[in-house]
Nucleic acid binder design. Structure first.
Lengths: 221, 221
DNA sequence: TCAAAAGTGTTAATCCTACACCCATGG
DNA sequence: CCATGGGTGTAGGATTAACACTTTTGA
């Protein structure tokens, strides 16, 4: 045992949302980052995060932090991993418990964005502070994996959506096109969506049916 | 923010091994527990664990701890989850980063077992201290899940093994019998094992071929 | 009436499971 | 030569991927 001070605990979050791309109909998987205003890594972009208060749970800390820095309220919030390498911060020993979150597209646009907070496309990130590049890599891997066998994609959409919307989410996350016919059948087979009976009018073509996520278990927590 | 002291960090491990069952040819998934020698939960069984030293990584802490309490050297060691509910310890605020480990059957028998350390069958555990019941539940779920799509089962076996050995491991973890023919084909198709060319002599019947795990990536870390 | 997305149908390839069957060994 | 686990073969069902085809709308 040494006489070094005890390691500090921090909680950070990787927040994913879909953002419309300029002069395009596509959306791209994005995340908000905050610019560091002090050393170390002054001026670098980093994940939102902060210390764990003695009276809050890890999840509460993640939610509070996320709210404070971006004003966002996630629809999905889940623990990712805990990073504790000795040298991950050049100045002090910090163990970071990292959560990842999904926010609805329509809410992501309302996010409080200032000088020091900005959205970045997930496939075009700057070099981040600390080991945050590695952390985002983990989060992306987990997201891509989970979208295949859970209903988390719903957490990125509003209450009502078309199957094309849902497919677009999957495509943005996976980074490849999916066959609309097979996608439809696959989703219908899972029973995670149900038709609302309404249709989305005003499109350029045949109006698609609107669906909602079937109420089931917690998606939020 | 409050003026309460900062939460403490602990690292705990769930260690799985296969143990022969008395007067039976079967093995059963088991884990070593330590009896608490102080309050809170004095006398209750608990997971091995201890504080994180300032100069060691989380993984190193897990490995050191595991060595100190059981004398075991795990063949697989992986972070499970971090537990940080405010009330999980009745006396102080502790955030526990939990790892889970697999040890080889032949080494598990050599484990240093004393008055305060004992193996328990995973499906017949006593009531544990703190939230350790919940933690073991998580670990079991993860193990059962991972055995289906990774080669972790190899970490429970010696260097050379028969497919029946490997199948026995899968069966002990999953808690159900598997078709030997289909199991063989499934494993062969993954390319995770290769025949050594040798056979296990001295059995009561046709001598089965011996296999080894194909060298690939780290299984240990 | 045309373009394009919504939605349905079909087929072939693949994978999984159950189970029949042969092989090799100790007793 | 028999019981038993080792090991191979195979047929049917389920799942998947590719793509042709029909429907419905706005322009």
């Amino acid at each position: 045992m040494s006489s070094d001070p005890a390691p500090a605990i921090a909680v950070s979050t990787v927040i994913f949302g879909l953002r419309a791309i300029e002069r395009s109909e596509h959306v791209v998987l994005s995340l908000p980052l905050v610019k560091r205003v002090r050393e170390p890594y002054l001026g670098r972009w980093a994940l939102p995060g902060g210390p764990l208060a003695a009276t809050e749970s890890l999840r509460e800390a993640a939610r509070r932090n996320l709210r404070a820095t971006t004003g966002l309220d996630p629809k999905h919030l889940e623990q990712l991993y805990t990073f504790g390498a000795v040298e991950r911060s050049p100045v002090d020993r910090v163990v970071s418990i990292v959560y990842w979150a999904l926010v609805r597209t329509d809410e992501a646009d309302r996010a409080r964005i200032g000088e020091n907070v900005r959205w970045f496309a997930a496939d075009a990130l700057p070099q981040l502070a600390f080991d945050h590049d590695e952390i985002v890599g983990w989060a992306l891997k987990r997201l891509r994996n989970k979208v295949e066998y859970t209903r988390i994609a719903h957490a990125l959409l509003a209450d009502e959506f078309t199957l094309a919307d849902l497919r677009e989410v999957h495509e943005a996350i996976l980074g490849r096109r999916l066959d609309p016919a097979n996608f439809r059948r696959r989703i219908e087979a899972t029973g995670t969506v149900e038709a609302t009976g309404r249709h989305l009018e005003g499109g350029r073509h045949r109006p698609p049916a609107l669906y909602r996520s079937t109420a089931q278990k917690e998606l939020l927590l």
